[in-house]
Design a protein around this nucleic acid. Structure first.
Length: 116
DNA sequence: CGTATGATTGTTTCT
DNA sequence: AGAAACAATCATACG
């Protein structure tokens, strides 16, 4: 069995599942955005199917159906999505690498900035 | 070392 | 343009 980094960690997540804190406001000026989640890839492929079988379903309906099916999928079914997520992760990794690297540098350049 | 958190990602539909 | 259900994530920061 793989190590679950102390399952206790995840447990907490379930505890918090009670509330749905909306992401808002950023912290870092260039926040190296995080990799997409398997759900994102899954939705990209399913979104069309959901609507295909639920042309009448609206936002809430589809969203719920989407998640419901997602959980119905087998590990192997999510695998492809998760793999994509893992792939994107590498991308995000590089992002942070740069963010972390330039962070200390000052060189100056100046340039950069936040906003453009 | 282990933990908790926070931030983020993409879809859909609506006004 | 943004909002919110739906789900995963998972990298980071901190003592």
């Amino acid at each position: 069995m793989p190590k679950e980094t102390t399952k206790a960690t995840r447990r907490k997540a379930a505890d918090k599942a009670e509330k749905a804190p909306k992401a808002k406001a950023k912290k870092d000026p260039k926040a190296p955005k995080r990799p997409l989640s398997a759900y994102m890839f899954f939705s990209q492929d399913w979104r069309e199917r959901i609507k295909a079988e639920n042309p009448d379903a609206g936002f809430g309906e589809i969203g719920k159906l989407l998640g419901a099916k997602w959980k119905e999928l087998d590990e192997s079914e999510k695998k492809p999505y998760v793999e994509q997520a893992a792939r994107d992760k590498q991308r995000a990794e590089a992002e942070k690498t740069e963010y972390d690297g330039k962070k200390g540098d000052s060189a100056g350049s100046g340039g950069d900035d936040d906003d453009e």
